[in-house]
Amino acid sequence: MEKDRITAKSPVTRKKFLRICGSVIAGTVIALLSGISLKRIRSKESGYFWQIDPSKCTFCGRCETGCVLPVSAVKCVHANRVCGYCDLCGGYYRTNVKDLNTAAENLLCPAGAIRRAYVEDPYFEYTIDESVCNGCGKCAKGCNSFGNGSLYLQVKQELCKNCNECKISQTCPSGAIRRVAYSEAYLLKDA
């Protein structure tokens, strides 16, 4: 054993003693820290996912550029039950459009992510192709300005990296992005 080599007067004993003291202090610190933190942990339902509150969103377009992902995790979502199925859709067409056809110069979406399908006279169904949508919110702005507001932005949870500090939430001018619980991971309009 080491003890045999070390005499009682050797400084190593003091060193060892200090080390043991240090270990005890460190252990207590860990126990205290984790104890207090454990108390602070709420149930699993505590806010974990980032989500946009559609009632606060101003469609400023910062979601498109703010996200850390190359293509934003924010996508446009369409609430069919809120939609008016208009032919002249404020979210689909640019303002002052001349012909209501699907020619690119008439369309508002820069990515061409909105699909339009004829339902019956005079109604048209609009669908978002989320694989193309970049979350710029132009359609949502148009729809909220001229229509029922059925197009709105949501964070797609399967794409979101759930950053500790959502970069969009830092640039959002209206504070519309907040942490939500699992049960309300999407704040949908057509519930």
């Binding site: 008016g84 029922n148 507001g149 049960s183 704040l187 519930a191």
Partner: peptide, 30 residues
């Protein structure tokens, strides 16, 4: 996800400039 109940107030406050269409062709909401 089960549809959250919390959002019902939002629907009522949304500006419904255009009425909900009455579909005659038997169209169903996706």
């Amino acid at each position: 996800l089960s549809l959250p109940l919390i959002l019902f107030p939002l629907v009522t406050t949304a500006q419904n400039r255009f009425p909900k269409p009455d579909f005659e062709s038997g169209y169903r909401y996706p």
